[in-house]
Measured scan of single mutants.
Amino acid sequence: MPVRRGHVAPQNTFLDTIIRKFEGQSRKFIIANARVENCAVIYCNDGFCELCGYSRAEVMQRPCTCDFLHGPRTQRRAAAQIAQALLGAEERKVEIAFYRKDGSCFLCLVDVVPVKNEDGAVIMFILNFEVVMEKDMVGSPAHDTNHRGPPTSWLAPGRAKTFRLKLPALLALTARESSVRSGGAGGAGAPGAVVVDVDLTPAAPSSESLALDEVTAMDNHVAGLGPAEERRALVGPGSPPRSAPGQLPSPRAHSLNPDASGSSCSLARTRSRESCASVRRASSADDIEAMRAGVLPPPPRHASTGAMHPLRSGLLNSTSDSDLVRYRTISKIPQITLNFVDLKGDPFLASPTSDREIIAPKIKERTHNVTEKVTQVLSLGADVLPEYKLQAPRIHRWTILHYSPFKAVWDWLILLLVIYTAVFTPYSAAFLLKETEEGPPATECGYACQPLAVVDLIVDIMFIVDILINFRTTYVNANEEVVSHPGRIAVHYFKGWFLIDMVAAIPFDLLI
């Protein structure tokens, strides 16, 4: 008679799926529990143990900040960024110097990925580790590398530091407007667009060049630039800015003055950032001319202004700041037409079709709590990747769950009947059967004279019903998954307890 339990259901295979997918890609990662103190490590794979030199037993239950890997060259700011990422709910990448158990130093890129439950609360953290440099290539500990984003994938490793954006290309926007319009339909740009040429040739750093990471940081200074100062900065030398009595002219307006920039070969870094931020506020060169004239017309309804409409929906549905990093990277690809469009465009503009998908598509409701890094690593669709929660398995109709209350009560009843059979069957065979043979035949009273025979008949009927119930009862397979398919249940029961239950259900007393 089957006594099969499996009270692990309803099970959740999400954690096993993450481990299996990460292991298949030869990654070095740990999984931490966000619900406990210090976000203790609950799993670390073999790749991480080989990377740091510690065994799994030495890593388990330690804080996922990996303070046991810190050393003299470990930056405090990087460690603080990892700790801050564990307090938030967004994906974050941090470069930090770690030390192995043998004392060797290596520069590592740590990717902190939160995993949320159905309520939107962070319950786990996945920390992925990628070695960037070994100890002989690690720089000085005073050099802070965590304020910069990861290198873009479309640049060669040897040319990542030679990417320079020439400031004269930004200063000569109005001069290039006529050349853009003359391109017409034969050019790649839309009317009114501004073409910015980027020099990728390796050259020595000069005062006129600005690194790509500095251009990325310009967006942080746009908020500090007032509207009046932006307007004066875009007017140009024809209309000098008016300053109040006793007030000095704005240095932001002076930063885009061609006369002032041409007199000296070098520009201050602050002026460069502010000038680029001011130019980015204009949607095209037409807006710059309109600002000089004193009238700013409404933005025209053409394809170039609607190019950012799908980007707005993608940004609203993005799951991490990696989408913004990807957008900034692609927006700086050289030799393309940049349409400086305000994100607050007309909502009635139709979304044009684009061959290049900048932001990841909208994630469906079932995966809105899973970050983009987890979705990318697992390579699963929205119909396959579940949320991290207890999910009731989908069972067929008329199927009994093996952990249901009805099955528990039924098993206790069958257990009592088995005990009765084990006690009274030998007793009936030894004593009652002998008395029946010696006594007179009682054929007239039937079952009324033999109450134990009636009980034995009921017990046999219950055993037959138990066999039928076992054909529709779920079970737990070797992978700790609840199986509810009727065919698989029948095959599993035939290979197991079916023969024993059938022999126990045969009414031998009635056959004798």
Rank of each mutant, 00 (worst) to 15 (best):
V3T: 11
R4H: 15
Q11C: 14
Q11G: 15
T13H: 15
L15V: 14
I18V: 11
F22S: 13
E23K: 01
Q25A: 11
S26Q: 12
I31Q: 01
A34W: 01
R35E: 13
R35H: 15
C44A: 14
C49A: 06
A57I: 07
A57F: 08
M60C: 05
P63T: 13
D67Q: 15
P72Y: 01
A79N: 01
A83W: 14
L87D: 13
E91I: 11
V112C: 06
V113F: 13
I123S: 13
I123A: 15
M124N: 06
A142Q: 15
R148Q: 07
T152L: 06
W154D: 15
A156W: 15
G158S: 15
A160H: 05
F163N: 14
L165K: 06
A172Q: 07
A175Y: 03
R181I: 13
G183S: 05
G189T: 05
A193S: 07
V194M: 01
V195I: 11
D199A: 04
P202M: 01
S207D: 05
L210P: 07
T216P: 10
D219S: 05
V222F: 15
A228D: 06
E230S: 12
P237W: 04
P237R: 08
Q247N: 03
P251T: 09
N257M: 15
N257D: 14
D259G: 07
L267S: 08
A268K: 11
A268F: 07
E274Y: 03
C276G: 09
V279C: 12
R280N: 05
A285Y: 13
D287Q: 12
E289Y: 01
A290C: 13
M291E: 14
R292S: 05
A293I: 14
V295F: 14
P297E: 08
H302V: 11
H302E: 08
S304C: 12
G306A: 12
G306C: 12
P310N: 07
T319S: 09
S320V: 14
D323S: 08
D323I: 03
V325P: 12
K332C: 04
Q335G: 14
Q335D: 11
T337P: 05
L338H: 15
F340C: 07
D342R: 07
F348T: 15
A350P: 11
D355F: 07
A360Y: 14
A360I: 10
E365L: 07
T367K: 07
N369L: 09
L385V: 07
